[in-house]
Design a protein around this nucleic acid. Structure first.
Lengths: 205, 205
DNA sequence: AAAAAAATCCCTACAAGTAGGGATTTTTAA
DNA sequence: TTAAAAATCCCTACTTGTAGGGATTTTTTT
């Protein structure tokens, strides 16, 4: 029996995962936490086999939490998961000692596979992750300087026109950059860029 | 001389604040941090008079950082600041021991005033904050259950149509809720709701 | 110096959210 | 039980971003 705990500040997502795992008889959800600190407490209390944790959480983020967990309990396997394919986040989770990484839009099958794989002491990184596709997992700087700049401004809440005024370029240029960013990140849809920019507010270089 | 440190994961914002404070001769920025853990280290090292910290930061968030700082250095005054008027965040910062709270879109004058006020051991909470306007600062539940639900779904990246399908209601209804939420939060503009929903991913009740 | 990458700008069409109205039904609270 | 609040739905007009093209100039890199 694989005993797991889930950490995710979004309760509805936890509920979804729990529901999804109900049919997997060898996997048991023994606890859940809504922030990093609660996760640490929970792990100390229950000592699960596998921890599934969001990157971005209140109080303590998933990366720091993973570091602490792996220091105290090296045998516990941690799977990180987040909304987007953030190369840096994946690398940081790996450095922190995580055994796996999946994305929130991954299928149930992927989730289950990830849990079983890490429980067998193997690592599992979602095949959708860009980091897996390209060999060089160190410097994978996909976005150009200008694109990063524009992404940052999007995250700050600026519209294309506002950005064009801030950077003294045309609105059309900003739109082109947006499209290129979307293409590079393999995203579609209306608000994805905004969400991505805000979500990854981390590590803008 | 008021010695302050700034914590904010968005370097450009730190730069902006520093620039703004250059002309204030009695205020000196003696350090900056891009995450909660770095902030704690910095405070221990430099022991400033005032700390200005973002709520949402990698590793350790502003609320937890404030709690730690106030435990170790009760005389240091902390000012929280964030993008939006999150009633819960303000309350939590207050509980953690913060002396003030301002919003990122506050004017420079407000920022300077806040710093000087807390340095005088008085508390400063931005007059724009809803919490200040309404007397009952405990339960200030502005958004209805349905509105919160929709806001959550927006944060998860769903469009109005998708939300309407998820909740078995019409698209028009979702739009109305959006408009009401915007009105209640006093927001305008295209992506504000998305950004707000993602930013406040915290504490959805 | 030549090729590749990045940055700049324009076009049309379409989808989605905002802003301003209005209106009805269902819940909740006094 | 009756007001008040919440939730439901519809209308038109407008703005903004996405998707699909194309094209030119400026920087890098080889």
């Amino acid at each position: 029996m694989i005993r797991i705990v889930i950490a995710e500040d979004h309760q509805s997502l936890i509920d979804g995962i729990k529901l999804s795992l109900q049919n997997e008889l060898d996997i048991q959800v023994i606890g859940e936490a809504n922030d990093g600190e609660a996760l640490i407490d929970l792990v100390r209390l229950k000592e699960p086999n596998v921890v599934i944790t969001d990157i971005r959480m209140p109080k303590l983020d998933g990366i720091s939490a993973t570091r602490i967990i792996k220091t105290e309990f090296p045998t516990i396997d941690v799977i990180g998961f987040s909304m987007f394919d953030q190369t840096d986040a994946v690398a940081q989770m790996r450095d922190a000692g995580a055994s796996g990484y999946i994305m929130k839009n991954s299928s149930l099958a992927t989730l289950v596979e990830a849990i079983r794989t890490v429980a067998k002491k193997k690592s599992f990184f979602d095949s959708n992750l860009m980091i897996e596709k390209n060999t060089s997992l160190t410097e994978e700087i996909i976005l150009s300087k200008r694109e990063l700049e524009i992404l940052r401004l999007i995250g700050e809440g600026n519209s294309s026109v506002e950005i064009s005024e801030l950077l003294f370029i045309g609105k059309a240029t900003v739109d082109t950059h947006r499209k290129n960013i979307l293409k590079k990140l393999n995203m579609h849809g209306k608000n994805d860029l905004v969400r991505y920019a805000v979500e990854r507010k981390y590590d803008f270089t």
